[in-house]
Structure formats: C-alpha cells, structure tokens
Design a protein around this nucleic acid. Sequence first.
DNA 1: ACCATGCTTGACGTTTACGTCAACGTCAAG
DNA 2: CTTGACGTTGACGTAAACGTCAAGCATGGT
Lengths: 135, 135
Amino acid sequence: MPGAEPTWTIAELADEFGVTHRTIRFYEHQGLISPQRHGSRRIFHPRDRIRLALVLRGKRLGFDLAEIRRIVDMYEQPPGEAGQLRYLIDQITARRAELEQRRHDIEQTLSELAEVERRCRSDLARLADGDTGQE
Amino acid sequence: MPGAEPTWTIAELADEFGVTHRTIRFYEHQGLISPQRHGSRRIFHPRDRIRLALVLRGKRLGFDLAEIRRIVDMYEQPPGEAGQLRYLIDQITARRAELEQRRHDIEQTLSELAEVERRCRSDLARLADGDTGQE
DNA sequence: ACCATGCTTGACGTTTACGTCAACGTCAAG
DNA sequence: CTTGACGTTGACGTAAACGTCAAGCATGGT
C-alpha cells in the first residue's frame, strides 16, 4: 500500500537523530511533539519526525526549548484569523532579528578565528624556516 | 598620564554589558577572566573587558562555558612552540566547522521563516480583499 | 508456556549557569 | 566617627534539560 505514510518507533527516531528515548519522551512532555499511540506504544508520523528535526536544529542554534517551541509552532499551518496572522508575523520578525544577530556574531567570530589561524600559520612557517625541515 | 590603560570596576563592567556582578565573579571562578586585585577589590583591564565581551558573544551563539573557554583562549597570543601551534590550528578548524554548521542552520531557518511569513501575508491580503477594509 | 526484547511510566539524580541571601571589609564624605 | 556606597567571600537555592534506575506490560519466537 504505497499511499500510506511511514511511521517510526521511538528507538528508530532516537537512533536516527542520535538522541536517547528519554530525550524524545521529554520533548513530548514539553509539548514539542505529540506522537500517536497504539495502546501505550508511541507511533511517530512524518509530522513528528519533522518537528523533532526542527527541535534539534533549534538546539544546535542554542535556543532553549521554550523558544524552540515558539519557532516550531510557526511551521504548522498558519491559522485563518487576521489577528493570529499578525501575531505570527510579529513573532517571525522577532525570531528573525535574533537569528540575524547570531549570524552576525558567527561571521565576526569566524573572521577573527581566521586571523588567529593566519598568524599561527605564519609562525609555523617561520619556525620551519629556521630548521632543516626534519621531524 | 595618557599612556596608561584604562581600568574598570566590577560594577562598571556589569553595567556596561548588562550582567550582574555575580555573573562576572562566576566567570572568574571558571577561569574565563582573571582580573587583577587591589587588596581584595577586582581591577579589570582592557584584556579582561575583551574576554568578557567574547564570553558573552559565545553565549549568544549558544555555546556552553567550557567551549567558550576553548574559543576565547585562542585569542590570546599564540605560543611559540610548533606542537602547540598545530594543536591551536586544529582547534580553530574544529570550532570553525561548528560555526559554519550553525550558520547553515540559521540560513535555512531564516529562509523557511520567510516562506511562512510570505504565506501569512498572502492570507492576510486575501482576508482584506473580502471585507470593506474596516477594522 | 516461557523468556527475551522492546516499550511504558514514574521517580529521583545531575550538571550548568547562574540568583539570592547573609555577613563582613573598606573607604571617602559629612 | 559613623554612615552609606561599594566591594568581598561563602553558602544555599533554582530552572533547564535531560540521565539513570526501577518496576511493570506486551508480544513474538522457540
């Protein structure tokens, strides 16, 4: 039945994303994902998988879970009401400002590290000049 | 005496960077900064100020203090010994990889949020079309 | 029938990064 | 000389984000 969407167990997702199932359960407890149940077993659908990936990307960016939830929730189908839509646009504007600040910080750090590395390499070259090149 | 470098008290730095002095003391305890002492009072030199700024930028990027220390320590005058230089270059390479991953995550998130925003705005426009423009 | 394997829910422990007193030192101003 | 203002060192508290048992259910293979 090729039209059916795939599902995953907790172990499969934990394995794929390199987290423990404790972590996934914790994220569910925080309302970040809401897997379906078959009896007591969790069944993860593509939607859950995507949200988990978004959460982990948020973590790589250094956001805390509360802020990650705000971001991830924006990905869901936007609501039809005007006030909600304006609120969502405001949220996006705010998150974008943070992300752009971070990008700026990253670029500055990268260029500074590049400068340090340049000095290191020139120092290394100067040292290599002084000896016969042996190990 | 204009050749002398400026110094700051803990309150001045805390105020300037928007942190508490508890935070600054904690960073000193972690070896991130090492202010000079006058009696028991801390005296902060430009070097300490720079390191504090680097630490806070690292925090904005979501690094934990252990990793921040590794990064900040790279900014100090590189050592003269070849092995140390190579180690430092390796460290820089590793940090750079992380930063570039983060930058990639940020750009992806930014473009996805832009797409959500575009949908929101078009939904809003569609709603505005339907009514008479009143509030 | 039985047992291993995988999943479940608590419940308590841990680490990080500080916050928050409490109690005391010190130094210039009135 | 006393009074703030500012600084100091502990010591304990706390919120976030899980880690780590413990104990139990469910189920598929032998």
